[in-house]
Simulated scan of single mutants.
Amino acid sequence: MSGKTIVQTDNGVEGLQAFLAHVAERHPDRSRVVFLCIGTDRSTGDSFGPLVGTKLEERGWQHVFGTLKQPCDAKRFAEALEQSAERENAVIIAVDACLGKPLSVGKYITAEGPLTPGQATGARLPAVGDYSIAGVVNVSSHKPYMTLQTTSLYTVMQMAETVAELVDQAWKQASG
């Protein structure tokens, strides 16, 4: 990607919808869109990415890496990154959970540019994505693993459903 990364924080549903509409307008061909949904099914908070991936697959999106069945966790991240990069002219949208300020919980951080997975837990993974969506699933703390483990499943599931629904809406509007 060329140019400066544009990051929008504290996006509610309207901000996320506008972001996805922008991406869909620029890249209306669904067959070129690859979702890299990062996280694990073994932690409530960190299941945001795999939940989004599962919901996108259920809606018929073909190029999804990271689902509840096959999470894109730290162990599978390099493999998923390699496979997604093999898709010619692919547009990669990275999705991951993050921790944030109390008033940001339930909102999204979107960027025209990559996200760096695992920052809250100290994981050292490379930045990924032409576009990115980070779901703020809980409040930052000095014990990020514990915070992710005790995150509300209801909140994470609602956020994942919202992302999947808005992705579908954005590409349906862009194509027609």
Rank of each mutant, 00 (worst) to 15 (best):
T44M: 10
P102G: 06
F65Y: 15
F65M: 10
E58K: 15
F65G: 10
C72L: 13
R30N: 00
L99G: 10
D73W: 05
F35W: 01
P102F: 08
K55W: 11
A80W: 11
I93G: 02
V52A: 08
D41P: 07
E79D: 10
A97S: 12
L99W: 11
A74H: 09
D73T: 02
L81N: 10
L68P: 12
R87C: 12
A97R: 04
P102R: 08
D41A: 01
L81V: 07
S47A: 12
V64M: 01
W61I: 03
Y108P: 01
D46A: 09
W61D: 06
I92P: 04
S43A: 14
L36P: 06
G39A: 09
E88I: 07
L36G: 00
S104T: 02
T67Q: 12
V105G: 13
D46N: 12
A97N: 02
F35Q: 06
F77L: 14
A97W: 06
G45E: 09
A74F: 02
Q62S: 06
T44L: 14
K69N: 13
V34P: 05
T54I: 13
E58S: 15
V33T: 05
Y108N: 04
A80H: 15
E88D: 15
E57S: 14
A90V: 03
A111L: 09
N89F: 11
S84L: 09
Q83L: 00
R32L: 15
G113A: 09
L103K: 13
G100H: 10
E58C: 14
I93D: 08
N89D: 15
R87W: 10
E86T: 12
D73C: 07
R87M: 15
R32Q: 14
E79C: 13
Q70P: 00
G100Y: 09
L81G: 12
D41R: 03
C37G: 00
S43P: 01
K55D: 14
A94G: 02
V64H: 01
E79S: 14
E57C: 14
A90F: 02
A78N: 11
C72Y: 09
G39N: 13
H63A: 02
R30F: 02
K55I: 04
Q83P: 01
G66F: 14
T67D: 04
G45C: 10
A80L: 11
A90G: 15
R30H: 07
G100L: 10
D73N: 15
D73K: 03
D41I: 01
F65K: 11
T110K: 09
G49H: 05
R42G: 06
L51E: 06
L36M: 04
F48E: 10
T40S: 05
L68T: 13
K75A: 03
R76D: 09
S84R: 05
A74C: 05
C37E: 08
G49F: 08
E79N: 12
G113W: 03
E79Q: 15
V34L: 05
L81M: 14
K101V: 07
G106H: 00
E112M: 03
S47Y: 09
T110Y: 07
A90Q: 09
D73F: 06
V95I: 15
G66W: 13
S47C: 07
C37T: 13
S104A: 12
L51K: 09
F65T: 03
V52W: 01
L68G: 12
D46P: 00
L56K: 06
P50E: 00
S47D: 01
